[in-house]
């Protein structure tokens, strides 16, 4: 029979362990971020390294971004038009879609897509480099993997996310134009002028892009950290890849709420 005190101690330990575990994890990733920033000088001296990674992270993600954005824009256009039409205001569909895209859906969906397309690939790549001793080999050649492998990928991703988000916004708006104007017969002049009146460049577009910088930093930090810390086995890399996608998704959504609260509340008053 366990004594009461040991039961209580066990209960408290059960409560505390996840919290302290999470704090330790947060501390480790923060230290990793500082080490990464300290190792980033190479990227400034040799921008070619970053450009090469931007090709893999950015350019090769273009297809999924373009196709998804087009369909998201088309669906939004369709749904909004159907609903707004009931109140006789189908004309404002361009404005509603543009606001939804540049403020929320563009940054968030683009970030989620990039996390699953490029973030997971980064984790798997770095994790496998660790598992096959390529990182150790580099250390033995007196080359720091953090500055040669990790930092260029991080910065390439950080710069690619806002660019891909911008592409997502533009293509999404064009998708809704196709449905609303070409398909459902909304007047093109009204479609664009409503949008032009309601969407503020500084408040809506710039804030959306600022969001995407935050998302880019978060996704890439999670991705390279998970890869760098992955257990050097097949199971370890698989686990790290999954963690990258899951954590990125949660962090993006949580962060989006906070950023929205900062940026857009009180604008109506």
């Amino acid at each position: 029979m366990k004594s009461l005190s040991s039961v209580i101690a066990g209960f408290l330990r059960g409560l505390g362990a996840p919290v302290s575990g999470a704090l330790i994890g947060l501390g480790q990733i923060t230290r990793f971020l500082f080490a990464l920033l300290a190792a980033s000088g190479t990227c400034l001296r040799r921008p070619g390294l970053v450009v090469r990674e931007m090709y893999f992270i950015g350019v090769l993600s273009l297809v999924i971004i373009l196709v998804s954005a087009l369909f998201v824009g088309m669906v939004l256009g369709l749904q909004m038009y159907e609903t707004l039409q009931r109140f006789g205001s189908g004309d404002v569909v361009g404005m509603v879609v543009a606001l939804a895209l540049v403020r929320e859906l563009g940054p968030v969906l683009a970030a989620l897509l990039i996390a699953s397309r490029a973030g997971s690939a980064l984790t798997a790549e770095i994790g496998l480099m660790r598992a096959t001793e390529q990182l150790s080999a580099m250390e033995m050649m007196a080359i720091q993997p953090l500055s040669r492998v990790v930092a260029p990928r991080f910065w390439a991703g950080f710069l690619s996310v806002p660019l891909l988000t911008s592409v997502f916004n533009v293509v999404g708006i064009y998708g809704s134009y196709l449905v609303a104007v070409e398909g459902l017969g909304v007047d093109a002049g009204t479609f664009w002028s409503q949008m032009q009146n309601a969407v503020d460049f500084r408040i809506d577009v710039v804030n959306g892009i600022i969001k995407s910088f935050f998302f880019g930093a978060a996704i890439m930090l999670i991705a390279v950290y998970q890869g760098y810390q992955a257990a050097p086995t097949a199971a370890g890399v698989a686990m790290a890849t999954t963690q990258t996608v899951v954590r990125s998704a949660l962090v993006i959504l949580g962060m989006d709420f906070m950023l929205t609260a900062f940026m857009f509340t009180g604008l109506g008053s």
Partner: peptide, 12 residues
Amino acid sequence: MGMLFQMGALFT
């Protein structure tokens, strides 16, 4: 120093 790793560790 030069080092040859167990499975070669070539950059893939």
